[in-house]
Every structure is written in C-alpha cells, then in structure tokens.
C-alpha cells in the first residue's frame, strides 16, 4: 500500500477515535456546551447591562455584536485548542500514549488527525452555541461580509493549531506541571487576544503579546466584516498578518512537538515513569 494511503488512514483513525471517545463522554460534552452557552450569554448581556446602568444606549447594538463575536470566536478557538493541546494529557490519562507513539505513522499524521478533529469539533460546538444564543438577541447581520469572516476563521484556525501543538508539547517536557502550564497558555491567549476589548487598551509591555496570537487577527477580521461590512480586500493588512503568524506558528509548533517527543524518549517521559 502507498505510504500516503497509510498516513491518510492513520489520520482518519484519530478523527474516528476522538469522535467516538467524545460521544462516550457525552455527559461532559453537555456540561461544556451548557457552560459555553451560559458564558456567551453572560458576557454579551454586559452590553445592555451597561445601558441600563449608565442610561447611555447609543452603542448597545454595536457592543452586543462586538462581545458576541468575541465570545463565539473564543468558544470555537477554545474547542480547537482543547482538543489539540490536551491530546498528550488525554492519552497519558487513558494510558494509551505508548501505543499511539508505537504506530508506524508520521508525527504530522498524528497531529493532523487530531487537528482536523479539533476543527470539526470546534465548529460543531460553536454552531450549536450560535443557534441557542440567536434566540436571545436580535442581530442585524444584513451588511456582514460572511466570506471575509469565514476566510479569517479558517486561516486563523491553522495559526491557532500551531499554538495548540506547542502547548501540547508541555506535558511531554513536564510530567506533573505540563498540563497546568497548558492551561496558563490558554488563559494568556484569552487575556492578550482582544476577545472582549481592543488590544490597544493593554499595557504597553503586554500589548506585543497580542501580535503573536492568531486570535487577535481573527477577531479584527470578523469584527470588521460584521460591524463595518468590510470585504477581504479592505482587510488585507490584517489578513497578511494572520497569514504570516499562521505560516510561522504551525511549522514551529510541529518542530517544537518533535523536539519534545525526542526529549521524552531520551529521558523516559513519554509515559509517566516512576
């Protein structure tokens, strides 16, 4: 059989297994979904809440969309990040990590399968959240350029996967603390990516971190398309920045992950020894 066929079959095996495992943990999926919906609603209600508190309502509709985009994009990216960044922790917890690494497939196949699953998982989860949340808010999206929004989401997913793969390397380097560090990385992305506010309000020393987060450019692109009806050509500067960040972060993530696997195999940290 062709090597490429073996690799494709291998990648599919990860998608199928992760889907089946997610289905078997359906109770937790319901919990996460409910939490995501409540979180999106709670954050977005800050916009009408501010109007109620201050009596100023001129920007309420704008803020509803601004916050809604932020929370929904974060719901999606969080799902993608979780599925990739915690794959090592998950395999180690189940006890299957050594068998997965013994399979005669390339590392990029393993990462590719997990990454594809994470994107599908993130999209499905976010679409459900959008469906429920749309019952609570009346949104005028007539001027939205959906093509631009879609391009930013898909390209940004690639860049975000790179960051997730880098984070997935942490549990290979640090047995006890790796998973905890991964959560810290996730939290830092939330802080610096402008999910709920423009990154320009961040302190000068913190703002540069927003430049390396793909989420920053995804949000700029989608908000531009939804709030200002900008086309992909109008947003070309942001698109190039997102392209550049994605072009660097994905191969860098794979390279770091490969180095972490080598380190784990040298020091016996692949599995939890001792």
């Amino acid at each position: 059989m062709l090597t490429s066929s073996i690799q494709l079959r291998g990648a599919w095996a990860f998608i199928e297994r992760n889907f089946r495992a997610t289905r078997r943990y359906w109770g937790w999926e319901v919990v996460f979904l409910v939490y995501s919906i409540v979180n999106v609603l709670a954050v977005t209600y800050i916009a009408p809440g501010t109007e109620a508190l201050t009596g100023v309502g001129a920007t309420t509709d704008f803020m509803v969309i601004y916050l809604l985009v932020g929370t929904l994009v974060w719901t999606y990216l969080n799902g993608v990040f979780d599925a990739v960044a915690f794959m090592i922790s998950w395999e180690r917890w189940e006890g299957t990590i050594e068998y997965t690494f013994m399979a005669p497939i390339k590392l990029v196949t393993m990462l590719g399968g997990s990454a594809l699953f994470s994107i599908l998982y993130g999209l499905v989860r976010t679409l459900i959240v959008i469906g429920v949340v749309s019952l609570f808010f009346t949104l005028n999206v007539a001027d939205t350029d959906f093509l631009t929004a879609t391009i930013f989401v898909l390209l940004g997913s690639v860049g975000f996967l790179g960051i997730g793969i880098m984070a997935a390397a942490l549990p290979l380097l640090f047995l006890e603390r790796g998973t905890q560090m991964t959560i810290v990385v996730q939290a830092m992305l939330l802080l610096v990516s402008g999910i709920y506010y423009p990154v320009s309000i961040l302190p000068d020393w913190l703002e540069p971190l927003s430049w390396i987060s793909p989420a920053t450019y995804i949000l700029e692109g989608i908000r531009g398309a939804m709030l200002d009806g900008k086309s992909v050509f109008d947003m070309s500067a942001e698109l190039w920045k997102l392209f550049a960040v994605s072009l660097i972060s994905l191969p860098l993530g794979v390279w770091i992950f490969q180095k972490a696997v080598d380190y784990a195999k040298r020091t016996g940290r692949l599995k939890r020894y001792g």
């Binding site: 059989m1 066929s5 073996i6 079959r9 291998g10 599919w12 095996a13 990860f14 199928e16 297994r17 089946r20 068998y99 997965t100 399979a103 005669p104 497939i105």
Partner: peptide, 12 residues
Amino acid sequence: ENLMFSGQTYGL
C-alpha cells in the same frame, strides 16, 4: 473501537 483505531494506524 479500540482495535479499529490500532489497526488503521498500522494501515489496515
């Protein structure tokens, strides 16, 4: 399900 995963990663 477990063995389907294993077999497919070996190209079966």
